[in-house]
Amino acid sequence: MTDRWTDRLSDYLDDALSTSDRRELESHIRDCGDCAAALEDLRAIVASARALAARDVERGMETDLWPEIEARLRDIPVRAVPEPVREPWPVHRLSFSMAQLAAACVAVLLLSATAVWFAHDWGRRETLARSAAGGGLITAVPATSAPAEAAQNEIASLKRVLDERRDRLDPSTLRAIEESLAAVEAAVEQARLALEADPDDPYLVAHLEEMASRQLTLLRRAVDLAGGAE
């Protein structure tokens, strides 16, 4: 038994026919006992296949492979993944205490300062990039494309400035900044250690760049908040 619909039965079962083809096939099946029987058999086979996965779970695994797997894993250096970095300031609040309102004000200030910084600094970077390219239109250089020496120097410099101006910041703001910086620095360090163990892993490279970028951004925000660079 074969006709032009035979090879379309699987598409029909998988909902892969156009509406018009589906209607035509359904009309055909009403008159073609062979196709109707084939469709019924295929439907039963597909249903049986789908039941296999559930049966696997019911049966479980007869052999416990864990002891051997565990022994193998102990010989493999752990590819550490940094703890999730805490967002510097909470953003989901349903009710606010006075302290939380103050923190919200700080967040708004920081966002504003960051926006100003980005508007200012991004334009400066594009200008520098254009100059370097002889005035041609090129993509702006990312703020931290790698934990390069220049970025490390900037981080050290910003830390010194922030340390000198800590008394200009509200204690609760300073505490929030320091906690966030500690979290980001820990993440950078973990990413760096992980990358040492596996220098070719592109995920770790990208992760370290992202963490270093966050660290730099956070420090710049904090210095801006403490009075900006002088």
Binding site: L65, I69, I76, R79, V81, L204
Partner: peptide, 9 residues
């Protein structure tokens, strides 16, 4: 499962 451990990061 060894591969999953290696890649879980």
């Amino acid at each position: 499962f060894v591969r999953v451990w290696q890649k879980i990061g």
